[in-house]
């Protein structure tokens, strides 16, 4: 598929002077040799490139694969843990089997693209859902995720919401490859369906949490929030939902659609709907930081 073309394109990308070594390598060895060189390069080396926040199609796919691996691991562990093996959750267990199967499908699809391009896909990292980053000395950020159903749903909802947003954030870097964009678009939609379902599960669980099926300023804030860097240098960490509260939509250039003045009279809506009606992208910086919390 066009992933090969994509690699070729990356190799000709104008990179900043402090470009990731991998990309320098690509430029030096040229297109034909690039694939072979990349294939022998352990893709663990992709990590520094991510840290350098390169926004291109290749790094977008690496990021999305790590995201899918994260969700696969979350559901795999939960299905084997008391949180979903307990009799109390017997009725919802099949939902998570289904969720797992679809995340697996996505991860497999992304890996297949690496393989088709002659690359060794990156292996899934070892994820830790306690928030201790695989170090018992660190504080627990997300207690009882694998033993308490409410705690599990709270984290799963945030990760599925973030997933829909991370996909949206990477889409602009995939626009030059229509086929790849098409597939990623179709995965994003399934992530949004998952997020909606998890919110429905929280709303119908006991005790019920009054969240809507889309991020809303009316939602109760999570007790154990997934925090990411705020916008701007040195900004304090913020909840992923900070980005979702955006009420301004730009239609072209700098033109903001004036919802407060056009949605009046018979078309009046509750003002929180301006934000609810649009899911928002999570930028690469925040997406990378979020994934690093877990592995």
């Amino acid at each position: 598929m066009n992933f090969l073309l994509l690699l070729d394109r990356i190799s000709s990308v104008d990179a900043p002077s402090d470009a990731a070594p991998r990309r320098d390598l690509l430029r030096q060895v040229g297109q034909a040799g690039a694939r072979a060189a990349l294939a022998t390069l352990p893709l663990a080396l992709a990590a520094p490139a991510q840290a350098a926040l390169t926004n291109n199609a290749f790094d977008a796919i690496v990021l999305l694969l790590k995201l899918e691996d994260l969700l696969v691991d979350l559901y795999t562990k939960a299905l084997a843990a008391p949180v979903l093996t307990s009799a109390a959750q017997a009725a919802v267990r099949p939902d998570f089997v289904l969720l797992l199967e679809q995340q697996r499908g996505h991860a497999r699809f992304l890996r297949d693209n690496f393989s088709l391009a002659g690359l060794t896909p990156p292996a899934a990292p070892s994820f830790d859902f306690s928030g201790r980053r695989n170090n018992p000395a660190n504080p627990v950020l997300f207690p009882d995720v694998l033993s308490d159903y409410a705690a599990f749903l709270q984290l799963a909802q945030q990760l599925e919401d973030a997933s829909a947003s991370i996909y949206l954030g990477q889409m602009p870097f995939l626009t030059t490859d229509k086929a790849l964009f098409d597939a990623v678009f179709r995965m994003q939609l399934v992530e949004a369906r998952h997020a909606s379902h998890l919110r429905t599960l929280r709303r119908t669980a006991a005790p019920a949490i009054a969240v809507k099926s889309w991020p809303s300023t009316a939602d109760p804030a999570p007790a154990a929030p997934v925090l990411v860097p705020g916008s701007g240098n040195g900004a304090a960490p913020v909840s992923i939902y900070t980005f979702e509260a955006n009420e301004r939509q730009i239609s072209a250039g700098t033109t903001v659609v004036p919802f407060p003045t056009i949605l009046t009279g018979l078309n009046a809506v509750q003002s929180r709907s301006f934000a609810e009606a649009f899911d928002e992208p999570l930028p690469t910086l925040q997406a990378t930081a979020l994934l690093a919390i877990f592995g």
């Binding site: 939609l189 998952h194 997020a195 909606s196 889309w214 609810e276």
Partner: peptide, 8 residues
């Protein structure tokens, strides 16, 4: 993305 949430 929001339409997909509605559909679900």
């Amino acid at each position: 993305s929001v339409e997909a949430r509605h559909a679900a």
